[in-house]
Amino acid sequence: MSEVKFSKEHEWITLEGDVATIGITKHATEMLGDIVFAELPEKGSNVEKDGTAGVVESTKAASDVYTPVSGEVVDTNQAIVDDPSKINEDPEGSAWFFKLKMKDQSEMDSLMNKEEYDKFAKESAS
């Protein structure tokens, strides 16, 4: 599996072959608070880099989930739809959102590595 990369919209992404797994970061869940609803893209649909690909809602508000890369949705994580509190518990592990078959792997290049993202998250939070 590839190194974990991060987007400015607080998504994480890993790549295995040409299939990317995408979720939201721990930092994002801490900003959102208790997540109580998740909506995921439909399997088989195509999503475009930086486009919306889902929604999460906390007790306070709804937030769009963006996809950091383009591709066809090949799998979604029903477990987080059935129990959205899992997203708060393990956001960067078992609570992934969707998997994409990527068209253009060079889209990964512009994303941040962990060190860059941690710095970005710290700055954007203050």
């Binding site: 608070g33 208790d34 109580v36 906390s58 007790t59 306070k60």
Partner: peptide, 9 residues
């Protein structure tokens, strides 16, 4: 205060 460390729920 909107919430404290434990969160709304």
């Amino acid at each position: 205060p909107i919430q404290y460390s434990k969160g709304i729920i």
